[in-house]
Design a protein around this nucleic acid. Structure first.
Lengths: 350, 350
DNA sequence: AAGGGCATTTGTATCGATCTAATATTGTCA
DNA sequence: TGACAATATTAGATCGATACAAATGCCCTT
């Protein structure tokens, strides 16, 4: 009695193209065309299918579509540290842009581990991403990009880049930003300007140091390597390094820090020595994190619009996916100097 | 001359199960078993297939697998505001846990828009997610959860929850945390303790206010509604509200703020009135953001371990996917009070 | 009446994996 | 030797969509 295999029964309740076609009285092919927004089907047919979609509560299965169509409207987003507000902003910008275009990102956080990065990217490739936005982890080798070029989808690097890798890139002009900060201090009259940099071997670290040196060179002051120090991008590094600098004979009248966090540390370090900012020593940071303007004294810093960089990176990637060939593009957004209370003229005694 | 269709040519270079099977001299089925880590195939066969995988540079196609297997090892992660470091931490925790388990999250940011949230979740469903972690946007209706229950995968709410929604939940004990902060101030001798809350109608806002009221009630002080104010969670709100409070007749000797940002504002507001923290008025916040301990004075606050909550939420979801039935679970992690310099005994004149 | 052009619609093969049930192989024991 | 169980392997259908080429109408010429 159960043998009458009339309309084959499906246990799953989610309707498919076939159900839709039956309900609307057309073929699967026609339904598919409507789903994809083709203008081929007649207006009346389209409307009939559309109403069937609503009636059945149909949900499009993009995974099935992907298998045949060979693209997924999916990209990978691999960042080095999502808890850094800077990369969170980038992520928000990317997400916003992708949403508009109807795409969805897979997310992964590498925590600066190239091994983890490799594994995560590989996994995303298994999921059939059409493109990849990458903030390369510290120590990412150019060979990784060779592998990607061979086995992976198009890539856009964002905010950071690996020097020898041929790929699109969207980021900030760190070099120019740091140059602007240094030029500002020089214009105020400073001549002994220290730099507390980052130990990490990333493009960002190198560019920021280069910008500082550029400005000194351009103004004819020249660099004094005793005024250049490095450390991790932490409060402690900022405090420790400024204390060491102030206790050395070549005492600076101003200090530029790798980023705002280090600058916060430098401020605290100066205060712990009983020194006043900016009367005894000016301080400048980089990034313009939310707290920079609230700091006491409000921090002079360089602002990067990570949200916009995210949007640009996403746009760059979608363009590249649509048109995989063509030369690599580099999109470098200008930074903005925010002059606040932490910078002023050098002490007169100097 | 081109007609000799011997071995059908495939333009794509990515090898498939068929290539693997041919290379290893076994059937597709066997290869599939090996790929899925089944213990059915003989040791020797498994090793042969494994070496073919390496030899051909095979990349598993999970989208194809998903079509037949009806699960994707993919979940959706929908947060209300990724640029809030709090949710960024949560995201990092989730990502960490999922990575260990071999899963990948889709990410989307709703920016507190229920409409956007609906669209994004729907899109993720189209991509075949097996589960969803949601920090519901402000104003999410319980009906949305009904829709999900009907058409979507299992859901876990994180950090926030919609009251009437039946779903798993992982979050912090906001009520208890705020109670601890208030109890701390009461123990210091304060009797007129103000509260600057959040206007948003979220579970978090309600719970934090409730905790404050609990503590007052428990100590027999009772609430004075003139000391309770609300505003958006911004610096400006903190500053504006504390200034209004201090200029009213019922001047408080301490203030508890919805979160650290508001507390920063309150501190600045007090300072702008020429008042000293904590001598003239103690200040407490909530969240223990990174800057709280650096603030001048260092902020007394309640610490929430969002990273761990993220891990718990992910674990909860994976458990639920493996076993969809069973009662809804609520996982509520205890907060920790961080006593710092911004709280002290009330002014003696009081 | 036949043919050409255009707008619509559809049948069938296919994407790359998993699932099911059946078959091949081997070892053990009566 | 043959039956039986345990182990190892496989063929063929299938998941839900898209691609492609072919078919169908219909109107307008000639």
């Amino acid at each position: 009695m159960t043998g009458k295999r009339a309309t084959r029964e499906r246990p799953r309740n989610r309707p498919t193209l076939v159900d839709l076609a039956a309900h609307a009285g057309v073929s699967r092919s026609t339904v598919s065309l409507v789903l994809r927004g083709s203008r081929l089907p007649a207006r009346e047919t389209r409307e009939r299918v559309l109403s069937s979609i609503a009636a059945l509560g149909y949900i499009y299965d993009r995974t099935a579509a992907r298998l045949r169509a060979r693209h997924s409207n999916t990209i990978g987003l691999v960042v080095c540290e999502i808890t850094n507000p800077f990369y969170a902003e980038l992520t928000a910008g990317i997400d916003m842009m992708l949403d508009e275009a109807g795409w969805v990102p897979f997310l992964a956080n590498t925590g600066e581990s190239p091994e983890r990065q490799k594994r995560l990217v590989q996994r995303m490739c298994e999921h059939g991403i059409d493109g990849l936005i990458l903030c390369p982890a510290e120590g990412t080798s150019p060979e990784f990009f060779d592998w990607l070029q061979q086995h992976g989808p198009p890539v856009v690097q964002a905010l950071r880049f690996v020097e020898q890798a041929r790929s699109d890139y969207a980021g900030a002009d760190n070099r120019r930003g740091m140059m602007m900060a240094a030029a500002h201090l020089i214009a105020l009259g400073h001549r002994r300007i220290a730099f507390i940099g980052n130990v990490a071997r990333t493009s960002v670290s190198a560019d920021r140091l280069a910008g500082y040196l550029d400005a000194l060179r351009a103004s004819g002051i020249g660099a004094d390597e005793r005024l250049v120090r490095k450390g991790p991008p932490t409060i402690e590094s900022g405090a420790g390094n400024i204390i060491a600098l102030m206790q050395a004979p070549q005492r600076p009248t101003a200090v530029i820090c790798f980023n705002d966090i280090v600058a916060f540390g430098a401020t605290l370090g100066l205060q712990s020595l009983g020194l006043h900012v900016p009367r005894d020593c000016s301080v400048a940071g980089f990034d313009d994190v939310r707290e920079a303007s609230l700091w006491q004294p409000a921090l002079t810093t360089v602002s990067i619009d990570a949200l916009r960089i995210g949007e640009k990176a996403a746009r760059l990637l979608l363009g590249r996916i649509a048109n995989p060939d063509g030369p690599a593009r580099r999109l470098i957004l200008p930074p903005e100097l925010k002059v606040r209370a932490s910078s002023g003229p050098p002490p007169v005694a100097s």
